[in-house]
């Protein structure tokens, strides 16, 4: 038997925030490795960083920041009961996610065409630190990309619930939590972008 539906807005938010901490820590492991290996191979990391495409990285940063803005606006829209606008804004967020992944795909395939990928002959023959740099690059951006896909799927599902009326101005915590997840995806990119593209 199921209990009568229990609603606790603050509890739902608390649970989501706790979960977001675990996501930060997951990437924390990769950032620790980055810090240790950067200290050990500063030259190779610098050389690797200069091979990344700064223009594409910047465009992706702008896209993700815009998508986060749209997600935040969707929360406000649902609070005001603007169903169509909410769906539109969520759709915009998902479109941004698709654009981000497309650019990521272009970046990755360009690198792979140049023979830069984990375990590639070029990296095996190159300096040890360079192979480490690109392995970390692929793992960090790859796992982040996976989160982009999960987040976009989540927001798409939420948009369907907005359309069916299951999420409305009096019960929108699912949308708010999904938007929080999306901000986390954005936040992690805000760390990955300078570490790999800017500061080296």
């Amino acid at each position: 038997m199921s209990h009568p539906k229990h609603t606790d807005y603050n509890g739902d938010k608390l649970g989501m925030w706790l979960f977001l901490f675990t996501e930060l820590l997951l990437f924390g492991g990769l950032f620790i490795l980055y810090a240790v290996y950067l200290a050990r191979y500063p030259k190779e990391f610098s050389a690797g960083g200069h091979q990344l495409n700064l223009v594409l990285g910047t465009i992706n940063t702008v896209i993700l920041l815009t998508s986060s803005l749209l997600a935040a606006m969707a929360v406000t829209a649902v609070q005001r009961g603007q169903q169509r606008l909410t769906m539109g804004l969520l759709g915009g967020t998902v479109l941004c996610a698709a654009g981000f992944m497309l650019i990521k795909y272009l970046e990755w395939s360009a690198k792979i065409q140049h023979g830069i990928f984990p375990n590639s002959p070029r990296l095996i023959q190159g300096a040890p630190g360079e192979s480490i740099f690109f392995s970390l690059y692929y793992l960090s951006t790859g796992i982040h990309g996976l989160h982009v896909l999960i987040g976009a799927g989540l927001l798409g599902w939420v948009a369907l619930k907005v359309r069916s009326g299951a999420i409305h101005s009096h019960d929108y915590v699912l949308l708010e939590n999904s938007a929080l997840y999306w901000h986390l995806v954005d936040l992690i990119w805000i760390f990955i972008f300078p570490l790999y593209y800017l500061m080296l």
């Binding site: 990437f27 490795l33 984990p118 375990n119 192979s131 692929y138 793992l139």
Partner: peptide, 20 residues
């Protein structure tokens, strides 16, 4: 979460040869 990323790294060492 730290265990999770560590297991992901073992997996990628074995399957992708990341060499970290």
């Amino acid at each position: 979460p730290i265990l999770a990323i560590t297991l992901v790294l073992i997996f990628s060492e074995r399957v992708l040869g990341t060499g970290l």
